Amino acid sequence: MAKDIPAVAAGNQVRSVAKALMILNLLAEHQREMSLGEIAKEMQLAKSTVYGLLATLRDFGYLEQSPEDGKYRLGTRLFVLGNVVADSWDVRKVAAPFIQSLVDELGETVHLVVLDKGEVLYIDKRECTKSLRIVSQVGTRLPAHCTGVGKVFLANLPAEEVKSIISTKGLSRYTKNTITEFHLLEEELKQVRQQGYAIDNEEIMESLRCVAVPLRDYTGNVCAAISVSGTLSRFEGDELESIVSLMVRIGREISLHLGYRA
Rank of each mutant, 00 (worst) to 15 (best):
I254C: 01
T180W: 12
G82D: 08
V85Y: 15
Y51L: 10
R261P: 02
T147Y: 03
G237T: 08
A28V: 08
A55W: 11
G220L: 13
T147W: 02
A224V: 03
Q13L: 15
K3P: 00
G118W: 08
I243Q: 11
L112V: 04
K47F: 03
T129R: 14
S66G: 01
V17T: 14
M205Q: 13
I204K: 09
K169M: 15
G230P: 00
Q13G: 12
E161K: 14
T129G: 14
K125A: 12
S255K: 07
Y62V: 06
G52I: 09
L240Y: 10
M34N: 00
S66V: 07
N201W: 07
A7R: 15
E105R: 14
G237K: 12
E239L: 12
V192G: 00
M205S: 10
L21M: 09
S242V: 10
G37A: 15
V120P: 01
M205R: 14
I250A: 07
D87E: 11
I179T: 12
S245P: 01
D116N: 11
L24N: 03
L57R: 02
G70E: 05
A224R: 00
G52W: 06
E108G: 06
P67S: 11
T178C: 02
L27Y: 10
G118H: 11
A212F: 00
S101L: 09
G259A: 00
N83C: 04
Y174C: 06
Q137E: 14
V80C: 08
E105K: 15
V149A: 08
M22E: 03
A212M: 00
K117I: 08
S167A: 13
G11E: 15
R58E: 12
Q31T: 06
Y122F: 14
Y218P: 01
S16K: 14
S172T: 15
I250C: 09
R58T: 12
G170D: 05
I250M: 11
I226L: 06
S66W: 02
R133H: 15
A225T: 11
N177M: 09
V80F: 13
F182I: 15
E202S: 10
G52C: 03
V138I: 11
I179V: 15
P143C: 00
A159M: 02
V244L: 01
E188I: 09
E188F: 09
E187V: 02
L154M: 09
S233K: 10
A96H: 13
S164A: 10
G196Y: 09
T140M: 13
